[in-house]
Design a protein around this nucleic acid. Structure first.
Lengths: 213, 213
DNA sequence: GCCTGTGAAGGATTTCACAGCC
DNA sequence: GGCTGTGAAATCCTTCACAGGC
């Protein structure tokens, strides 16, 4: 095993990768931790330390080769291959996710979409036909799927998560506004714009209130 | 000022508040840090410590009153009032955000929507008419807006963020797949499902590869 | 001279563990 | 007996600072 790399570090790697892609498009061939850090509002030391968990990718006096560091990061993160995604829930949110163009170009292919409502089962969403939620397990048994995306109402989310986990899914992207339980060997990420807003209001409020200095 | 409360703590408060709302709906009147922690996969000590930054809300031997702790958290976070939101960008993503029903019930009201494309300016989205992006500053000068939501392509995002900041906005929810720069007194949160996926793949990969123990 | 990689130091956050109260 | 609130300890993460290489 990879000798315990902090999760915060893993979460920053995709950010670095994205910035390197942009730099590559701009024609840059070399970048220093300093320059990359300015771009991302991260200290150069942090970038160097993060990368040092995985090897020695830079050259003293020069910096990092953009293309080769990018390739390394993509390899480390597993972005050098395709990932198969199943989406559960085709309400407004699920629809938006299905037609959202941002996943495919990054190698995340939505191979199946499920919903429990007979109204949408059988309709086309994105490029796939909506399957009945009841078929979830049988589908996953017959088709390899790497990641489950949950876009059902909060009340139904835990059950959907449990079914995905029981069917062998080990990574879940949860859009439902609740915190699902998962076993420790399952990775989950929650997308919740409302929570994000609700933490920002704390800081706006601080400023609005005439501070009782 | 509030004596430096860690940002991680602030980010957890909305999660606690959401769980308390659910408990209230379920008819619970009292909850211990233990019970709340189990629900959220957080240690009881962490909940108690987090809350202790703001006061003493519990009763020894009993726990916390659900309603009154919820009210306290809402007050602390500023969720006891309405917040006015402006959305910039009405592509597929912006459309989805505008019609997404999750913000309004939580007190976040989209009061204006902007786009630079003549094709969508003038159309109705959600309940509001799309205004030309050029009108951003003049609108913000005449109408109070607390939070800006950015849903434009990555290339345009920094400029939009800068304009929002220059117009006085102090909180930004960014959906563009890049990391914008903001002055230190501006709060920003990035929503990026692709980054979330890209960090999960690292962990799936670990398992797939037959570990070279 | 510039910049990486990294031990060591420093700082931040989490967890422990227990006094105190209901 | 059960549970909070909180100093102190432990852990985790970031930053420093510099040896070493280009």
């Amino acid at each position: 095993m990879t000798l315990e790399i902090p999760e915060v570090v893993i979460n920053r790697l995709p950010v670095y990768a994205r910035a390197l892609s942009a730099l590559a498009l701009e024609g840059e061939t070399v970048v220093s931790s300093q320059a990359l850090g300015e771009r991302l509002d991260v200290t150069p030391a942090q970038i160097r330390k993060d990368l040092s968990y995985f090897g020695r990718f830079g050259k003293q006096g020069r910096g990092y080769n953009v293309q080769s560091l990018l390739a390394k990061l993509r390899e480390i993160l597993g972005l050098d291959r395709k990932w198969r995604v199943a989406l559960v829930g085709v309400g407004r949110l699920g629809q938006a996710i299905a037609v959202y163009g941002g996943f495919e170009p990054q190698g995340f292919q939505i191979v199946a979409v499920f919903d429990s409502s007979p109204d949408v089962v059988g309709t086309e969403v994105g490029n796939v036909t909506v399957l009945p939620a009841d078929d979830l397990e049988s589908f996953l048994r017959q088709n390899p799927v790497d990641i489950g995306v949950v876009a059902v109402p909060a009340k139904a989310a835990q059950e959907v998560v449990d079914r995905l986990v029981n069917a062998g899914i080990r990574a879940i992207l949860n859009y439902a506004p609740m915190t699902p339980h998962v076993p420790r060997d399952v990775t989950i990420r929650n997308i919740d714009p409302v929570l994000a807003m609700q933490s920002m209001t704390f800081y706006i409020k601080q400023r609005d209130v005439p501070a009782a200095k």
